[in-house]
Computed example of a mutant assay.
Amino acid sequence: MLTAPLPTLEAWTAHFAAAPIPVLPRTADAMDWLRGREDDLDAHSIAEFLAGDPLMTLKLLSHVATLRRPAFGEDDEVVAETLTAALVYLGVSPFFRAFDTLLTTEELLSGRPEALAGLHDVLSRAARAAVFSLGFAVHRMDADAPALYHAALLNDFAEMLLWCHAPDLALEIRARQRRDPTLRSAQVQMDVLHIRLPELEQALMRTWRLPQMWRRLTDERATTDLQARNVTLAIRLARHTQHGWDNAALPDDIADIAALLNLSPAAAEKKVRDLDSD
């Protein structure tokens, strides 16, 4: 567990790239159940069991992305933008062999209930962002809707890893923001960590060779890319409504979502509330 910030983005990237990625306890339980039924499973059915766990999604996709197909040369990258695609590439039996032992978040954060609660807040927000992103993409008839779902689900994975491997620092960030709600995330991250988490995410995605599409969709500078805007607005909405629908920023979110979906503000608000209640 890190208790003090590392000096550079490169140091943070190397540390997190080498650290184990835990999974949710229910994922570990599901894997035990699925392993006994391996012969009856295909990639799609396995993906349905794993889809709600951003950490397992990250673990699998980062593993598959580093594989090489010798026939295509050393520089060839495996591009799998969804769980199902990653499982199809890897194969059912190799998947179970590669993940025969899983560390859970409860095991990693045993005795740290505050850190575990903080992690669950991020996981819950990510799950809602993914639902919004998928709903927006389906409304826009975007053929890449599954990839946009996964991009939103994993957008805050650096913060998830921070709660897992540097809970004291994550708690310090949360405490400062609670003391001063006007404090911007970018500033408090620089003050406590000496880096910004979005920069760490982009660095880890490059290190793990995650799909270029994900890097584009989660790049906060990609303001004119409609798919990136789809993901960004879903994440904003999930963040601003995490504790209720009375956030002062919500009218601006609804206006931007209405423009993206070509709806009136009233229709856009009904759309997002319906998505949240499904």
Rank of each mutant, 00 (worst) to 15 (best):
A4E: 15
L6K: 02
P7M: 06
A14M: 03
F16D: 03
F16C: 05
A17C: 05
A18K: 12
A18G: 10
I21S: 04
P22F: 06
R26F: 11
A30Q: 03
R35N: 11
G36F: 00
D39W: 13
I46G: 00
A51N: 06
P54L: 07
K59V: 03
L60H: 08
A65Q: 06
T66W: 08
L67I: 08
R69W: 11
E74V: 09
D75M: 02
D76F: 14
E77S: 06
V78R: 04
V79T: 12
L83E: 05
V88T: 08
Y89A: 02
L90P: 03
V92S: 02
F96S: 02
L102W: 00
S110F: 00
S110Y: 00
R112V: 00
P113C: 06
E114T: 06
A117E: 13
H120P: 00
R128G: 02
A129W: 03
F132C: 02
S133H: 06
S133Q: 07
G135F: 03
A137T: 04
A137M: 04
H139L: 07
Y149T: 03
H150K: 01
L153A: 04
L154H: 05
F157Y: 13
E159Y: 03
L162C: 05
Q177G: 02
R179W: 06
D180V: 11
R184H: 12
Q187A: 12
Q189L: 02
M190H: 13
D191W: 01
P198R: 01
P198D: 07
E199S: 12
L200P: 07
L200H: 01
A203M: 09
L204R: 01
R209W: 04
R215L: 04
R216C: 08
L217W: 15
E220V: 05
E220K: 11
T223I: 15
D225F: 00
D225V: 10
L226K: 10
Q227Y: 00
A228F: 14
V231C: 13
I235N: 14
L237F: 14
R239A: 14
H240N: 12
G244P: 09
G244L: 13
D246M: 04
D246V: 07
A248E: 14
A249Q: 15
L250Y: 08
I254D: 01
A267M: 09
A267S: 14
A268Y: 00
E269H: 11
K270V: 00
V272Q: 04
D274Y: 04
L275W: 15
D276V: 01
D278N: 08
